[in-house]
Computed example of a mutant assay.
Amino acid sequence: MKAIIVTGAGTGLGKELSLLLAKQDYHMILTGRTEDKLAAVKEQIDQSGGSATALPLDLRNLEDIKEKALLISKTHEIYGLVNNAGLGYFGPFSEITDTEMEEMFQTNVFGTIHMTKAVLPYLEQNREGLVLNIVSTAGLRGKKNEAVYCSSKFAVRGFTESLQKEYEGTEIRFVAAYMGGMDTPFWDDSEHVADPTRFRSAAEVAGIIFDNLEKTEIVIESKKS
């Protein structure tokens, strides 16, 4: 059974994409930092007749990424990677701290790049694969009070588009998903969005992405309030 790795699979869009992909007979490798949330998603997949493994992973730790990719490759045929995990701090640029800037780039940019670098050799070995990068519309245009967050997402956009050109003509595909705000726990510790419930649910966005995976670019704008 071919396996797909999902980062940030314990909640939100990562969870919903994992549930959908599991129904397509992929073995889901659920990664993230919160073990109980990963275990809950694994149980949900198992109960629906799917197959999944919960695997704690810290995207800020390069050695952990390399070790876990090797570990997965020994027991599963790695077919895909969903770079979903993301982190955002919002507010006037002058008030964003150095630590917040570093954390956003460490997770959003370097986490995505390092995960892709670790998994690609196995896709090349199998001569096929799918890398889905969850970017956000913050990677398409600048936004007020999101300067550093947008910067990190623009970086992921450039990374994705470059690999699309680099692997053009092969069976290894890179897909970029650009979505607006979603009603997920992403906003729990932020006052940047007053009412996240006006956004699409993670399940709705996951469905749109899933239905458009044949494309290289998927744009899902926020619902207007």
Rank of each mutant, 00 (worst) to 15 (best):
N83M: 01
N212H: 14
V109C: 09
S136Y: 03
F186N: 03
F159S: 02
T7F: 05
G14N: 12
G207Q: 09
L62F: 14
N212I: 09
V131I: 15
S190L: 12
Q44H: 10
M104F: 07
T11K: 13
L213I: 09
L38Y: 13
H192W: 14
M28P: 08
I172M: 09
G10E: 11
V41D: 11
E191Y: 05
K74I: 01
K68D: 04
F186Q: 03
L17G: 04
L70S: 12
F174Q: 08
V119C: 08
A69I: 08
F174S: 01
M182W: 03
K144E: 14
A177R: 02
V41L: 11
G180M: 12
N84F: 01
L13W: 11
M1I: 10
K42F: 09
T160M: 13
A39D: 15
H114Q: 14
N83A: 09
Q106F: 01
I45Q: 10
T107G: 05
V82G: 01
Q125S: 14
L38G: 12
E221L: 07
G207L: 06
E77N: 14
G129Q: 02
T112W: 01
T107M: 03
G207F: 08
T170H: 11
E128V: 04
E103R: 11
K143D: 06
V119R: 02
A22T: 11
S162Y: 13
V205K: 00
L17W: 09
M28T: 11
G91H: 06
N84R: 01
F110W: 15
T170Q: 10
D98C: 05
L13K: 02
V119K: 02
V119S: 00
E204K: 12
N126E: 13
I45C: 09
D58C: 03
G86V: 01
I78F: 06
L19C: 10
L120H: 02
L81T: 02
V193I: 15
V156M: 10
E124A: 06
I134T: 04
D189N: 15
P196K: 11
A138Q: 07
T160E: 07
I5W: 11
F154E: 07
H76S: 13
G158E: 10
G32V: 06
K165F: 09
S201E: 05
E146Y: 13
L163N: 13
M1R: 12
Y178M: 06
V119W: 07
M115I: 02
M179I: 04
V131G: 04
F105R: 00
A155T: 01
I4P: 06
S151G: 15
F199E: 02
E166T: 11
I65W: 04
L59H: 03
F174T: 00
G158K: 07
F93E: 11
K15P: 05
L140S: 07
I5D: 08
E161C: 00
T53E: 14
L71E: 15
E161I: 08
T53K: 12
T7G: 11
V41R: 07
L213G: 02
E168H: 13
T137Q: 09
A39Y: 06
G49P: 07
A206Y: 02
K224Y: 08
N108G: 03
F210E: 08
L81Y: 01
I65D: 00
G10N: 11
R33I: 10
I96M: 15
V219D: 02
S201C: 03
E67F: 14
F199M: 12
S18C: 08
R173Q: 14
L71P: 00
A118F: 05
Q44F: 00
R141T: 12
E124S: 09
T197R: 14
I4H: 10
K37I: 07
T31W: 09
G49N: 06
